[in-house]
Design a protein around this nucleic acid. Structure first.
Lengths: 220, 220, 220, 220
DNA sequence: ACATAACCGAGACGGTACGTCCGGTCTTGAA
DNA sequence: TTCAAGACCGGACGTACCGTCTCGGTTATGT
């Protein structure tokens, strides 16, 4: 049986000419990201379109499509570009405090820079576009989870909690935030510490008590 | 002097001519819902459009727009029409068992009837359409929450848990499911009992231990 | 009652982005004109729609709307594109003969190329669309009149008739043809020479006999 | 017992439910005609639709469709209903004067009662609807021609002109008016007497001079 | 040092779907 | 039956974006 060497990626007959990252015009890149950021703050989500971004940025549409093969990539690039740093959490000695801090800062950033809208658009887009969904899964979500994992690891080092790889915990935490973001229902930020306290109680007791949940520590 | 009550100016905004629900053609309504259900099972989410639904149903587009002022209403009507009954949970004596049952049945229904896609489209749509968001908030979400509240109330009556109105608990539970639905990541349903056990442990301890979360029981 | 505020007033500060004529795709232009011509010969007038033309031409609707701001422009472009030349009349030494020739050839062309239908659609369209009416007035009618004016001028040079600028004469001639075209009543082409002989007799005597029509020669 | 007159039209495979003229509601009929007349004066031609007329008249659409099988019938009914009388011309002893009077009064009526718009719509409609075209040919046009024929007959009785049945003459006269009506170009009513003088000169000389037009007097 | 690629802006292109409007038919309840 | 009201199916309207494709013009690499 003869393997076709050109077909490394199954099903990919995508003969895209692979743009040369070195020659990328940084001015254009910045213009696009800035334009998108501006539109997000000024316009309703329904007014965000590639065409509008390109026009606002003074950039050809192709320039966007060249560097961002799907919408998700663009929004993720924006999200990463200048925002990640805003939510780095120092060691506060308490996981609960740190999670609260992380959550509150995230919401603050979502609100103030309209990045919340970007996330909403990103998630919405991924529902009807396979490539965008992949980007969401492979690029955006891991980064989001890593923030939380860092805090968990720190707590483990401090001996605050037991060593465990509990995806469900992170799912619950992020799911809570997404839920409120997507439904625009976080009337009261006091819901956050409450939610975290519930989660942490669940976590602290997850060290092998009930037989039907004893596998928590072995998950994954 | 007779005042003409039919004032054409009528500063009121929308003043839509209010279709007469009694005269609604049930055949058309069913055709639309069936067509939508079929498309959801057969087509990718990106292929779902009002136009496609109307064509498939053999119905004029206007007939859809007449009864569903926004896309969300349509999807919610579908969701309600024949699905709710599938996830009624009998009293199983254990909240944990019941929540597990509810979750598993929900995912089963989402999968088998493609109603999961409907929810995904519904949520995505609400991101760029204010009216749809309102429908999501006011019509879809309360119904979803009520399922869980019923189980919680039953557990309270059984004395299994203390009386409490803990929105955060429900947010966490639903948020978890939405998160996995929207990102198409529920590879393993064993994550569900794990998640529920975490939640329940948080809940069971929420009865006024730590001073900073003692208000759990008084919430709302 | 919601009155639909059609754009008829429209101070026409319509800063449309003015498409760049140089970049116009000639293939698309030809495809549109050919498709329209074909539809005119094959279909009843009621089946002629922008959508049908675009589909037949394998062209996006926008491509039509981009270059033809109103329906009239499209039909006039078709009419001009390949038809005008068919009715150029050589000097035959006699105005009557030439007018007969022009008329007969016009009807022949209207019939054989279905351009008569185009004119009918053009005129009908202009009745309910201000822009189309303007196009009819400013673009189509002058060209039609010029054909006749040329013959008249030639006759003047030959000394056949006196110098005069008689709009009414042309109005009568064109009016006659339009009348029969629009009502689909030209059962017998022998009506044409008869009509022309009447007109010409009126013309030949118009050289200042009756005082109340002496201004014929000064008209405009 | 009266015979049911609905089956008069032979060859009609039109299974229309045969409206009973005797039971026709005159209130509804008047309301429709008045509404149409009002819309014609108040609205641009593009705003005239069956739906708008029905709504304005406070009448069901079916009531219009029942009595007017095509749009043309409706407009002709309006035109006939109250307007014809306005252009009856007394014997003025001179055909030219009478034709001028007829023409001027027609334009005056067209303008003042917006009936000109009705005629425009009528003609436009006939371009894309066979039934309407038939109505135009069989009902509207003959009536219009009869006005002129009456004047011609009177002139013949007076001995002013020779006996003749010259369709072309009438075609020219009506064609002239239609042309200016449809193109909204009758800037100056002084064009009318000029046009008529041309026509009449043609007519007065049409009594067998040139051999090739000697058949004028034998026409029809 | 300069040819030659790839970039860039602009925007035309073939399409799909939007949400609205109207045509013409059918249904309902009241008179 | 007729009428007012209006729901119904169908289909065209004109617009907005999609993602692709030229088109000159402008870098900026690499031999």
């Amino acid at each position: 049986m003869a393997l076709n060497p050109t077909d490394e990626k199954a099903g990919s007959h995508d003969h895209r000419p692979k743009p040369d990252e070195r020659r990328r015009c940084q001015r254009a890149r910045q213009a696009v990201l800035t334009a998108l950021a501006d539109l997000l703050t000024e316009q309703p989500l329904s007014a965000i379109s590639i065409e509008a971004i390109a026009k606002r940025a003074g950039v050809g549409k192709q320039t966007i499509y060249r560097w961002y093969p799907d919408r998700a990539s663009l929004f993720i690039d924006l999200y990463d570009s200048d925002v990640a740093s805003r939510v780095s959490i120092p060691d506060m000695g308490s996981l609960e405090k740190e999670l609260n801090e992380l959550s509150l800062r995230t919401w603050e950033m979502w609100r103030e820079t309209a990045r919340g809208k970007a996330v909403r658009h990103l998630i919405a887009t991924a529902q009807s576009n396979e490539q965008s969904l992949s980007q969401l899964q492979d690029s955006f979500m891991p980064k989001q989870r890593r923030f939380i994992e860092q805090l968990l690891n720190r707590a483990i080092e401090r001996g605050e909690i037991k060593r465990l790889k509990c995806d469900a915990f992170i799912d619950l935490l992020i799911g809570f935030h997404w839920y409120h973001l997507l439904t625009n229902t976080l009337d009261d930020e006091s819901a956050i510490p409450l939610m975290i306290s519930i989660l942490l109680k669940g976590l602290s007791r997850a060290d092998g008590l009930q037989p039907d949940s004893s596998d928590v520590t072995k998950q994954e």
